[in-house]
Amino acid sequence: MKKKNIFSLCIFLLFLTGCGAFSGSSNTIQAPEVHKGSEGLSIQFMQNAPPQSVYEETNFPLLLTLQNKGATDITEGWFTIGVEQSNMELRGEAVQSFSLLGRTASDNYGEQKIVELRGHTKKLPINTQRLESVLSVTACYAYSTDASADVCIDTDLYGLAKYEKACQMRNIAMSGGQGAPVGVSKVDIEIVPGEEQNTVIPQFTIYLENMGTGQTLVPEAVATACSSRSIKSEQYNIMKVEASLFEYELDCNPKLKEVLNDPTLQQGNEKAGYKKLMQKKGSVTCTLQEGISKARGTYTSPLMVHLEYGYADTISKRIEIKKK
């Protein structure tokens, strides 16, 4: 009897999965291929450059690959290479600026740049047979994310309409990123009554997530982040959010002054919202204040979200320096 029940349950589960009841594919964001993934700038040391192990008082190659694997062009980027100066020195510019084009429909890889430098190991301290030294590269750049989705707007607040609705209003789950290290992970939709009786106001809660290994910061602090200069905590983990429903710009909150007490930074677009991420996550609320006439019924409209931020990421490598 028990076996029979288990068998029936398996068959049922098979049916459920086969029917795609769990797929939810009709509600995911339809992003072009370019706007997929959670990578922005990829920084890598080339193989054996620097090598794992190197003798004292010798030169070694240091080759860095910078590749913009995201969907946004980098027009303002910096990288700085840190070496432990007691053990080695860098021959070449340790701090450099760069710009790299992002992925496009015709270039699925993004622009790549190879930085060629040389390092030189110093003499090991007396009676020291070996030593491990760390070499690091920090890259800081301004970046943005564009996400879009077709959302269902249902002006029939209380479900009184007798016509067949063109779509059903659902929250939108997103995963995998939109071609940038920071992306939209989910959008919740709510329709609230407007000030005027025949209007409704669509309200979107946009959930943001830093899916990369680095940190977000205000775009204006990009150059500072890649230096040893002072940087304030307010400037970290923050991003600007703009959203529109078809051609109508949404009003996003909170505003800059609510999250950042920095007079040097300007709100700019007054409808833009700013969000400070906590534990790499956060959400903003964007509304269409003008409202939508109830007469429009139920329809599908494109929601577009644009995020702007700076991004800082570091890679490092441990090198063994051996006595000759």
Binding site: S230, S233, T314
Partner: peptide, 25 residues
């Protein structure tokens, strides 16, 4: 060594200054 304001920023943001700069030791 790190600039004081930056260290404070890391701490306030609950960021690990070592992890952020690729330091394991």
């Amino acid at each position: 060594f790190i600039e004081k304001e930056r260290l404070r920023a890391y701490r306030q943001e609950q960021m690990d200054p070592f992890a952020e700069n690729g330091i394991t030791e």
